[in-house]
Design a protein around this nucleic acid. Sequence first.
DNA 1: TCTAATGTACTATCCCCACA
DNA 2: TGTGGGGATAGTACATTAGA
Length: 380
Amino acid sequence: MSHKSARNSRIAKKSSGFRLQDRDLRIARFVAVHGYVTTPQLKLFAFEGWNDWGSWESVSEQAVYRRLKVLCDAGLLEHQRTWYGDHGIYRATRGGLEAVGLDLAPARLDRRDYEHDLRVVDLALGLTDYSCDGWITERLIRSRIRPGMSIGRVPDGLILGPGGERWAVELEVSGKEAQRYYDVCDRYADRHRDRIPDDSPGWDPEEQLDDYVGSGGEVDGVVWYFFSDKKRRRALAAAEGVIANRHVGYDGTDHLHFRFNGADPPSPPLLEKWEEQRLAEREAQERERRRREEEHRRREAQARRRKLYQRAWNYLTEKERERAVKDLVDETMRHGRHPSEEEKRQAIIDAGRAKHRSDREREERKRRRKDAVRRFLSGQ
DNA sequence: TCTAATGTACTATCCCCACA
DNA sequence: TGTGGGGATAGTACATTAGA
């Protein structure tokens, strides 16, 4: 055995002791759901990141190639060179798809979509801080669509908010005619979700995917990334036309959102709908609580008033009641109108109060006179 | 046009370290 | 103590470029 073959057999022995790590499964899943990805994308996704001290940690390019080769040798991935000067691509094999529990066919390399597809992966990494958490790929969406189902236009991806907000993500590399932009925006408007349901799946991509497909493709907004400012302006005008032709929104707030961002650097949409919705619901609950309190106070005041009227009615003689009403009628007639029933009741209450005050004052005067007589007789 | 130099993606190997 | 992972470095394969 030559020196070289001896070393190769040692490597082969080493490779046979392959230990599958969590990161390997993350890699296999990442590759599987996107279809095909390049080495630099895999490096960003699985071999680099911020450590606990806030500094960027990375392994060498060689280490990445070596680990990916191990995964290829283990039958999880397959590597394919594309064009000179380009990085090769990695795809998940059937074994890799099974290992991560995905019922998908191995991806096929389509040269027409090659650039677009890889840029979507870049976008997904850029929008999720290289984690791809909260990102659902077009490939996953399509895998859930059964014959006869319709969810309208399938976006390049879905990005999720922590509260269950769902944005369709579109990446434009080549560009479309203005009418096509209008049609696309119009179709998204058809599937705009007025409000996020309380039992929304939230951050869980699997549940969100089921919910998305089950709802017929409902989203809370669309975020579009362009490499050309001219195409972006064209699409923006189309979206404004669609919004102007529709009346949408929940609780008075327009939530049919189209955002038009540049692809470099990608910035995620503002996932504020859930918060706004929660705030709107809290405000509505507060308004309802105040309304009920006000209603309660009003009823109590009415009850007190009825009681007061009853006491005044009993307290006054019939003649006093008639005089109170007559005085009121004379007063209002001087202004050319008849008093209302409520005013008559108030006049009775006022007369009862006046009589009560007068009676108390008379009682007080009598008490004082008695006291003065008592003090005089006792010689004080 | 041929050929050597150069560039780029990727591999092989050695060696050290961490971990079970 | 055996084993896998990762850094460092040398090497391979292939395409492109430049110069004779």
